[in-house]
Design a protein around this nucleic acid. Structure first.
Lengths: 142, 142
DNA sequence: GCAACTTGCTCAAGCAGGTTGACCATATGG
DNA sequence: CCATATGGTCAACCTGCTTGAGCAAGTTGC
C-alpha cells in the first residue's frame, strides 16, 4: 500500500478510535468535528470568528456550533474583555472533562503502537511527522 | 505537538494538497469523498452495495453517489456477470484519467517529504505506518 | 468629532448530502 | 416451490452548511 494510503488509513482509524473512546467515557452527544473546536478553544477561549477560520467554515456555521455546544453544556459565552462586539467562547468544567477524556482516548489509541514499533521507532515517527506537518494545528479530526 | 495531532495534521494537509492537485489537473467537479469511491472501484469495479460498505454510508447514499458520478462521466453501470439483480460499477476512461491525476498529485505531495527526511527515514515511515494501519484501505480521505 | 468603512455576530432561507422506510426484482436454501 | 435474504431504487425527511441581509461596535481619515 502506498504511503499516502497508509497515512490516511492510520489517521482515519485513529480518528474513529478516539471518537469511540470519547463516547465510551460518557460524552456521546459530540461528533468528531467538535474535537477541532475544542482544540482551538482550550488554550484560552476564542471568538466565533476565530473558530470559523480554524475550522474552515463560515462564521454562521461556527456560531451555530457554539450555540449547540452551549446548549449541551460544553462551552459558555463570556463578554470579550477588549471588544464589546465580540464574545469569548470558553470551555466549561464539562468541556474540560471532555477534553481530558479525548486525551485519554488518544493515549489509549497510541499505546499499542509502542508495542508494535518499540519506543525508539515511535519517537522517530513522532519527530518525522512533526517535520512533515509544520503548518501546525491544521485540522485535528476526530 | 502530540503524535496524534501531528498525524491528523499531516493527513489533513495531505488530503487538501491531493484534492487541490486533482482540481488543478482539470477534475474540478469532484470532492475528496469521491477519492474513496475511486479507490474501491479501480481494481475491477464494484456494486453499489460494496461501495456503501467501503464508504461507511447507506446503500441509498452510495447509489446516489454512483448516479452523480455517472452523470459526470467518471463511471458507468454494466450488468453484473453473475447476478442479474446487481450492476457492476466501473471507471470510464475519464475515471481512469482522474485516478492517474490523483496518483500524480499524491506523488507531488510526497516528493518534498523525501527532501525533508531523506529516503531512508521516509521508507521507515512508510513501513511503520503500514504496521499501524493493518486494517488496510479503511478510508482514503481526500 | 463625525462620516465611512470594517468587523463580530445573528436571523432567515435554501441547498447538499446523508438518513430511514417502503417497495420491486432476483438469488438462495429448506 | 415457498420463505427469506440481497441488490437496487423512489420518496420523505433531517442535519449541517451556505449565502444574503442587517445590526451593533470598533477603526480610520478628514
Amino acid at each position: 500500500m502506498s504511503l499516502t494510503a497508509t497515512l490516511l488509513a492510520a489517521a482515519g482509524g485513529l480518528t474513529a478510535v478516539i471518537h469511540e473512546g470519547v463516547v465510551a467515557r460518557g460524552f456521546d452527544d459530540l461528533r468528531p468535528a467538535h474535537g477541532f473546536a475544542f482544540a482551538r478553544l482550550a488554550p484560552g477561549g476564542a471568538t466565533a470568528a476565530d473558530l470559523a477560520e480554524h475550522l474552515g467554515v463560515s462564521r454562521q456555521a461556527a456560531s451555530q456550533m457554539v450555540e449547540e455546544l452551549v446548549g449541551k453544556g460544553y462551552v459558555e459565552r463570556r463578554p470579550h474583555p477588549d471588544d464589546a462586539r465580540a464574545r469569548l467562547v470558553v470551555l466549561t468544567d464539562r468541556g474540560w472533562a471532555c477534553t481530558r477524556a479525548a486525551e485519554a482516548a488518544a493515549a489509549d489509541a497510541v499505546r499499542p503502537w509502542a508495542a508494535l514499533l518499540g519506543e525508539r521507532r515511535l519517537q522517530a515517527l513522532r519527530d518525522d511527522l512533526a517535520r512533515l506537518a509544520p503548518g501546525g494545528p491544521i485540522r485535528p479530526n476526530w
